[in-house]
């Protein structure tokens, strides 16, 4: 009973942590195909654009460039946007040539990315350099908030576990009141009386922690199927990560720690009250 309450209580923060980690790795995947779009001036011909694209390709800070012909882009837009007839009305192609750049540095290295952007901006024939990292920044911001939230929830629920264990041990103490009295009378030290209760605290914490990890991984397993089919719809292969072993070990250790501390507090208070 106590073990399952502890397991459920601990599975909440550990489950949240697993979710946050998964979202983080998802945003990490997005980082990899984080491109810079370079919009050229309308006056730039396809030939000039090709030369520019090739020269950019030689820049060591750039992994790959991809030139998007404005005519091809318009055709694509006509097909997929549903504005086909509206576009036919246009006298000339309003779209510029675009070079898509895959930079060497990922989003983690913001300074060098911004440096690259400002370099590009200084080149002639380039009208606009767009690197839409804003939303990724925001996502990372949200994740940081979520992580802080998980920390707070962990502390609060950790306290809850401490109270659950204390309460259980208190009941055990009451049940064994006579036995404890007898042990005191024949000269048992506090450490001797306390030992079995510390063992119970240990087992409550240990089993609670183990079951919490099982619960979380079971949930991940249940959610994984729908998630990957959802990711498939976005042409993305994404699998939820289970709780890493090191995290599981840390959670169980945390839980065991709470169990022993909870038991220790209750029993030592109880014994100190008995001894005048």
């Amino acid at each position: 009973m106590t073990v399952s309450v502890i397991a459920i209580t601990l599975s909440l923060p550990s489950g949240l942590l697993v979710s946050v980690n998964n979202i983080q790795s998802l945003s990490g995947q997005i980082d990899l195909n984080n491109n810079i779009s370079v919009f050229l001036r309308q006056s730039v011909t396809l030939k000039q654009a090709k030369i520019l694209s090739d020269s950019l390709q030689r820049d060591p800070k750039i992994i790959e460039t991809n030139l998007i012909d404005k005519n091809a882009a318009l055709e694509e837009f006509r097909q997929y946007s549903g504005f086909g007839t509206a576009i036919s009305v246009l006298a000339s192609n309003p779209l510029p040539h675009v070079i898509q750049i895959t930079p060497l540095h990922s989003i983690d290295n913001q300074i060098s990315l911004r440096l690259l952007v400002s370099e590009l901006k200084q080149r002639p024939n380039i009208q606009l350099v767009q690197m839409d990292m804003g939303w990724l920044d925001r996502l990372n911001g949200i994740l940081n908030v979520a992580q802080r939230g998980v920390t707070i929830i962990t502390i609060l629920l950790g306290l809850a576990v401490l109270l659950i264990i204390s309460n259980t041990i208190r009941l055990e103490l009451q049940n064994r009141h006579d036995e404890i009295d007898i042990m005191r009378l024949v000269g048992a030290t506090h450490a001797f009386i306390m030992r079995p209760f510390l063992y119970s605290g240990f087992w409550y914490g240990f089993l609670g922690g183990i079951f919490a990890c099982i619960l979380v991984n079971l949930s991940v397993w249940l959610i994984d199927g729908p998630t990957s089919s959802l990711a498939m719809l976005y042409n993305n292969s994404f699998n939820l990560a289970f709780m890493p072993l090191i995290h599981a070990v840390l959670w169980v250790t945390f839980s065991v720690f709470l169990g022993i501390i909870g038991a220790w507090i209750v029993v030592s208070r109880y014994l100190n009250e008995l001894e005048s």
Partner: peptide
């Protein structure tokens, strides 16, 4: 001191009317 109480009690054998057995 509280710490030494158990050792002092070991010098005394106590017997009760209600036996106090486990």
């Amino acid at each position: 001191s509280k710490r030494n109480i158990p050792y002092a009690r070991r010098k005394i054998g106590m017997i009760f009317q209600d036996h106090r057995l486990l």
